[in-house]
């Protein structure tokens, strides 16, 4: 049972790290602000979600597991709202800033 839980943890956390790696690569390499935002929010939502899911069997108690899930939910809300705010600023600035590449 604990072996099964450990395998689940390793698989889920590894998958989550994969999303973080891809998200970071996208953040650094994508050409414009909206695409970079897209990459970043994937890392936040799915990456952190998978890591939290993987760590839940290791939490040891129900309270600990719920705290982990609460961390994910808070990060989800903050990430989604911050993403919307940045996207609004990008749209407000117009196409010049969107195409501004690194300066944007």
């Amino acid at each position: 049972m604990s072996l099964l839980a450990d395998i689940f943890t390793i698989v889920a956390v590894t998958a989550g790290l994969g999303f973080f790696l891809a998200g970071t690569a996208g953040l650094l390499r994508f050409p414009d602000a909206l695409s970079r935002l897209h990459a970043l929010t994937k890392a936040d939502n799915l990456g952190l979600g998978l890591i939290v899911l993987g760590l839940v069997p290791q939490a040891g108690s129900l309270g600990g597991a719920l705290k982990l899930v609460a961390v994910w939910l808070l990060a989800l809300g903050a990430g989604g709202i911050a993403g919307q705010m940045i996207a609004q600023i990008v749209n407000g600035r117009g196409k010049r800033a969107v195409n501004g590449g690194r300066e944007g």
Partner: peptide, 15 residues
Amino acid sequence: ASRPVVLLARLLPPV
């Protein structure tokens, strides 16, 4: 204030 900020200001303070 933009609408996402309003949403955040309604969601987060209770927590």
